[in-house]
């Protein structure tokens, strides 16, 4: 229960931060990505501010096995840089560059009741569905189907 409340609080504060930073505004995100146009460097400072604060917290939990609420620390440990990571991130970047919206801002936009935000969110969830479908197919069909005798 405590963890669920903390989770809501973290999501809520995250959303406030996106709004304050102007990052829930796709036009501002696109102005950062437009290096050859009238460039708005704000997003770089958003990242710098977030990383400066986040780095301390991650250093604090790094060697702990339990959080302050007693929950297990479940931070990812893989370090491998593979094709899947890079190709996936490139595909994400193309989508991000098309609309100026990434997953966090998509949820904040939906909360503002923006019809365009909701359209993006619906498509993003559908994209999730495509991923789950392809992954499931890979798990269920590891090799060719067995031959049948007539």
């Amino acid at each position: 229960m405590m963890c669920t409340t903390a989770s809501f609080a973290a999501g809520f504060v995250f959303g406030l931060g996106l709004l304050v930073a102007g990052m829930a505004n796709p036009a501002k995100v696109l102005a950062f990505l437009d290096l050859a146009g009238a460039w708005d460097p704000s997003l770089a400072l958003v990242m710098a501010g977030a990383i400066a604060v986040g780095a301390g917290a991650f250093a604090f939990v790094k060697d702990r096995t339990r959080t302050l609420l007693g929950a297990p620390v479940l931070l990812p440990s893989p370090r491998r840089i593979d094709t899947r990571l890079i190709l996936g991130s490139l595909v994400f970047g193309v989508g991000w560059g098309l609309a100026g919206i990434c997953p966090g801002p998509a949820l904040v936009l939906a909360g503002t009741g923006s019809a365009k935000g909701l359209a993006f969110l619906a498509a993003m969830i559908a994209g999730n569905g495509v991923f789950e479908f392809l992954e499931k197919k890979k798990r269920v069909a590891p090799g060719p189907a067995p031959m049948r005798s007539s």
């Binding site: 990812p76 899947r84 990571l85 890079i86 190709l87 996936g88 991130s89 490139l90 595909v91 994400f92 970047g93 193309v94 989508g95 991000w96 098309l98 609309a99 919206i101 990434c102 997953p103 998509a106 359209a119 993006f120 969110l121 619906a122 498509a123 993003m124 969830i125 559908a126 994209g127 999730n128 569905g129 495509v130 991923f131 789950e132």
Partner: peptide, 13 residues
Amino acid sequence: AGLLVGIGTRYGG
């Protein structure tokens, strides 16, 4: 864009 972000972020983790 939504489709690409949905698929790409999952493959990219």
